[in-house]
Simulated scan of single mutants.
Amino acid sequence: MSNRQVVFPAGRQALYEKNRYSPAIVSNGFLFVSGQVGSRADGSPEPELAAQVRLAFANLNAILLAAGASFSDVVDVTVFMIDPARQFEQIWGVAQEYWGGAPYPTLTGIGVTWLYGFQFEIKVIARMPDAAG
């Protein structure tokens, strides 16, 4: 018997079905969120970097909300950037708009060469608010 519950944000099911993965899974009191990019409703990238990062966070927040969580429940963050040496300061400035206060989640930043046409991706693990402990 599987102890996994798939979480779908409103209006995004077709995108996830097309690409054959779950946007998020709740398991054992944790929410595991697939990498979120700044994709428009049709799946295309938002062209401007700051707007793309904001849209990635909006997509992330839609999943957190659909699961009954918020960014304050996030315990671990991984971000992927195409050109971190050039883009980090701009990305980090936008990310701080969503980050919230201490205690902050753990963070791993990774520079990559390809993100399916995107410049930024964020994936998180959150502890579900109703989880014991």
Score class of each variant (00 low, 15 high):
W92F: 14
F8H: 08
A85P: 07
V75L: 02
M128P: 03
A95V: 13
F8K: 04
E46H: 08
V7I: 15
G93H: 01
A66V: 09
E17H: 01
I125Q: 04
Q52V: 09
F30D: 06
G93W: 05
A132R: 15
L15F: 13
E97H: 08
G100L: 03
R4I: 14
A132W: 11
D73H: 10
A131R: 03
A66T: 08
M81S: 10
P105L: 09
A126R: 02
Y104E: 05
N3P: 00
P129Y: 07
E97K: 11
R40H: 10
A66R: 05
G43T: 08
V79M: 07
F118L: 02
G68S: 03
G101I: 11
A67T: 07
P105A: 12
P45I: 10
I82S: 08
A95K: 05
G11K: 02
V37P: 00
D130R: 13
F120E: 00
D83K: 15
V6E: 00
R127L: 08
F80K: 11
L55D: 04
M81G: 02
F71K: 09
S44K: 12
N28Y: 03
A56T: 05
E121C: 15
Y21M: 09
A10Q: 14
Q13E: 11
N59G: 09
P23E: 02
L65W: 02
A24R: 07
G109V: 15
K18T: 14
V77C: 01
M1V: 15
Y21V: 11
V124G: 01
P45F: 07
L64F: 05
F8M: 13
G43N: 02
A62P: 00
E17L: 08
P23L: 01
